[in-house]
């Protein structure tokens, strides 16, 4: 944590008309580190991602990337800066092949003058190599992505982000739809990405997934930050408790008024 963080957020707020989606959120992420953003449904996680991915612009606050203040106008803008986002619903086209998905939007071309075509041989080779680096042997890159398992699809998305020179990888709930084993696969990818020197923002509502891989934890609740902690400052139980604090109180209240049973 000694060097300048790759991404520094100060007092980010977002208002949709009179609705406040996010207020005063600050955190940072450095290269080779994982910052986990935790929060329950409606905590403001998706607004947070959309601001970083360039889908929305913050109403207040500053974003510094590599020390420079930036403002993203479009997803393309964010991508060009080096921020790649892997969405929960996955930016994948299920009926298209692995290699086409891998390169979608940034296909390598060769050609004469204005006549350009995709260098399919190169694209297939790179897709295969990059997947191999992630430990997945795709023998046939012509295979439609829709036939891959959820974890494999996440892996394709992560590999793609890494290949296209992302310095910061944002993962939106990558484990939420997965079983235990598949979640393990994805967490492993996060560790690998971190070790390759990427900065990772890992969004989740599951502290047990976040704690083993994270270096820093930002907790959101109802659009507010409940603090940004370094791993050394917090335990997994504290994390869980902080995250669900409000909700637990509510649940307790229910129990008091209801059957009276204790948890």
């Amino acid at each position: 944590m000694s060097e300048t963080p790759l991404l520094q957020l100060d007092n980010i707020s977002k208002f949709y008309g009179s609705i406040t989606a996010l207020t005063g959120v600050s955190t940072q992420v450095a290269a080779g580190e994982v910052t986990c953003v935790l929060g329950d449904n409606g905590a403001g996680k998706s607004t947070f991602i959309k601001i970083l991915a360039g889908v929305h612009q913050q109403s207040e606050g500053t974003i510094r990337f590599n020390g420079e203040q930036v403002m993203f106008d479009s997803p393309r803008d964010a991508l060009d800066t080096g921020i790649a986002t892997v969405y929960q619903d996955l930016a994948m086209v299920p009926m298209m092949s692995v290699w086409r998905n891998f390169f979608l939007g940034s296909e390598p071309t060769s050609g004469i003058g204005p006549l350009k075509w995709i260098d399919t041989k190169k694209a297939k080779r790179i897709a295969k190599e990059e997947m191999a680096k992630m430990g997945i042997d795709i023998r046939d890159t012509e295979q439609p992505v829709g036939t891959l398992s959820g974890g494999e699809r996440q892996s394709v998305a992560i590999a793609r982000a890494g290949y296209f020179g992302a310095k910061l990888l944002i993962l939106d709930e990558p484990t939420s739809a997965l079983g235990v084993r598949q979640s393990g696969v994805v967490l492993k990818r996060i560790v690998e990405a971190r070790e390759q020197g990427l900065a990772v923002i890992f969004i989740t509502h599951n502290p047990r997934h976040a704690y083993p891989v994270g270096n820093r934890f930002l907790i959101l609740n109802r659009g507010r930050s409940l603090g940004s902690f370094h791993k050394s400052e917090i335990t997994v139980d504290e994390l869980t408790q902080k995250m669900s604090g409000g909700a637990e109180l509510e649940a307790l209240e229910h129990e008091l008024h209801g059957s009276g049973a204790t948890s």
Partner: peptide, 11 residues
């Protein structure tokens, strides 16, 4: 096949 996904990756 998936317009939103395509848009997200810059298509």
């Amino acid at each position: 096949g998936n317009k939103e996904a395509a848009r997200q990756v810059g298509v």
